[in-house]
């Protein structure tokens, strides 16, 4: 099946269970939103899938077009086709954006094949223009001294350059003003299509005004408790997360 298919994933941080039999399927070609209050494990899902060693996967599978990502190194996961737009991207002093993205693309080329610099820069500049990123940024160190909005746009730039099969956007909307939000959304919408599946993790409904999700999932206490169409996001916005909590309490009572 062409999908990002997460099955009964269990993840601990420092021995404490955070994800509890988490299951979710994002078919290729669709955009799903994962919503929920803080502390329910949304970012844990992102970091664990990216292969961060602090997140211990104690059970379950994460199948990317059928191949399990669990146990792979972070760089292997990325090259397998999963892209993570981080909530708080690291600053990397002394490494320029151009060299950083170049190294990432080079790592995806077959052994012995070298990236064509001219074509690379043309594509890079085109995408930077589309994201309203100043071309001077190519020689700036990755994320160093960037504003919150610049960091998020830089994440989307990387996604557009790396063209992953699946992308997880972890709270990409947090800390963005409305203009930056529109630009980021345009970038995501531009990539939308049959070749990519996208999972947007967000706390707020606002981003979904600009990116229409095919499905919305609500997360609570380490698993998905409700799934629906894009109207679910509006309902959440209106009723708040306590509504989910109350429904859940009623159901389990």
């Amino acid at each position: 099946m062409n999908a990002l298919n997460i099955q009964d994933l269990n993840v601990n941080i420092e021995g404490k269970p955070i994800l509890k039999n988490f299951s979710l399927t994002v078919p290729k070609g669709e955009v799903h939103a994962l919503m929920g209050p803080n502390g329910t494990g949304k970012s844990t899902l992102a970091k664990a899938l990216a292969g961060h060693e602090a997140y211990e996967i104690t059970g379950g599978k994460a199948l990317l077009d059928g191949a399990d990502l669990v146990g792979l190194e972070p760089d292997e996961i990325a090259r397998a086709g999963l892209f993570m737009a981080f909530q708080y991207p690291s600053e990397i002093p002394g490494v320029s954006i151009a060299n950083f993205i170049r190294a990432a693309i080079q790592a995806r080329l077959p052994e012995g094949e070298n990236l064509q610099a001219t074509a690379y820069y043309k594509e890079l500049y085109d995408k930077m223009d589309a994201l309203a990123i100043d071309r001077k940024f190519t020689s700036r160190a990755v994320n160093e001294g960037f504003s919150g909005g610049e960091k998020k746009r830089c994440e989307i730039l990387q996604m557009m350059m790396l063209k992953p099969a699946y992308a997880i956007l972890d709270e990409t909307d947090s800390g963005l003003d409305i203009d930056a939000l529109k630009i980021v959304s345009q970038g995501v919408n531009a990539m939308r299509g049959p070749d990519m599946g996208t999972l947007i993790i967000t706390h707020y409904q606002r981003l979904l005004n600009y990116i229409q999700p095919d499905k919305v999932h609500v997360m609570w206490d380490g698993r998905i408790v409700r799934s629906g169409g894009k109207e679910l996001a509006l309902e959440l916005e209106e009723k708040g997360y306590d509504w989910v909590k109350e429904e859940l309490a009623a159901a389990t009572a």
Partner: peptide, 16 residues
């Protein structure tokens, strides 16, 4: 965290 960020972009560890 810098190293992880580079790995998460698919850059092999020695290169990173």
């Amino acid at each position: 965290s810098e190293l992880f960020y580079m790995l998460a972009r698919g850059i092999p560890k020695p290169v990173a």
